[in-house]
């Protein structure tokens, strides 16, 4: 992948309004939950004994923000299919997989910057609200930096999941529904699966694994933070490879 493709993809990403709106939606979601949930807990009786921790409370927006950033990931490529401009793009860059890689790199950089900033903002806002409740914490406490940085990593990975789904499915609505299913619906449904087999599925299923990097305390039966992120990225890589193969083979 050449720097030419990267520059071109950066121009494409920054020159459509949906990029700005989905990024703002993601940041606002993080911040809103980061303030409102701590506020609710701070106003409850005896917050210190709620069994909650200040870090996770300030990052509760993750669940929803993962969907808005996934929408941006989807649109990054499905927008070109919707308008037909994908053909013009392929005329300029016949190496289609190269172009997909270029999109992924540019998206990753932009998303990491925005989501990490949003995660830190939410964290600090949340701690301000929690001040005096006994739940407030600092970046110096064990695991906190990993958790807050992890929130940016998890969100960006979710965006990449949207991007590879967009490349695979090529239709905005279909790809967004698939992203919601994979990030939100299926991981929750998997909790209902019975037995050892069900437990394994639940542990390894997409966001159940990926979200561990953005949680301060690993819940019983879940993967360790970095292992969880690794599994999430593996899901993305597998879908990405399928998408790349089809991208190469299919008529545009």
């Amino acid at each position: 992948m050449s720097t030419l493709v990267l520059r071109s993809e950066w121009t494409k990403l920054r020159s459509v309004r949906s990029t700005m709106w989905t990024l703002i939606a993601t940041a606002v979601t993080m911040l809103a939950f980061g303030i409102l949930l701590p506020l609710a807990v701070a106003n409850s009786s005896n917050p210190a004994e709620s069994g909650l921790n200040g870090t996770d409370l300030s990052l509760t927006g993750l669940g929803l923000a993962a969907l808005t950033i996934a929408a941006l990931g989807v649109l990054t490529i499905s927008g070109e299919y919707r308008t037909g401009s994908i053909r013009t793009s392929f005329l300029a860059v016949p190496g289609r997989v190269n172009m997909l890689a270029g999109k992924a790199v540019v998206f990753t950089v932009v998303s990491l910057v925005v989501t990490t900033a949003a995660a830190f903002l939410s964290f600090f806002a949340g701690q301000l609200v929690l001040d005096g409740t006994g739940l407030e914490t600092t970046l110096g406490a064990p695991g906190v930096v990993r958790t807050v940085v992890g929130a940016g990593l998890y969100l960006t990975a979710s965006g990449l999941l949207g991007l590879v789904l967009g490349a695979l499915i090529r239709h905005t609505p279909g790809a967004i529904v698939s992203a919601i299913a994979l990030i939100l619906v299926l991981p929750q449904i998997s909790a209902l699966l019975p037995g050892q087999w069900g437990e394994t599925v639940r542990t390894y299923l997409t966001s159940n694994a990926g979200q561990q990097i953005a949680l301060l305390e690993t819940r019983p039966g879940m993967l360790e933070p970095w292992a969880g992120l690794g599994v999430y990225l593996l899901w993305i890589a597998v879908i990405g490879i399928v998408a790349a193969v089809l991208l190469h083979r299919r008529d545009a």
Binding site: L4, V5, R7, S8, E9, T11, G84, L91, A92
Partner: peptide
């Protein structure tokens, strides 16, 4: 080549549309 003039992202300006294409080919 000009295949389908309507196959462009309507939200982009003419300049940015051409710039993205130009950059990809140096």
């Amino acid at each position: 080549a000009l295949l389908d003039a309507k196959a462009v992202h309507g939200g982009r300006t003419a300049h940015n549309h051409l710039l993205a294409l130009a950059q990809s080919n140096g």
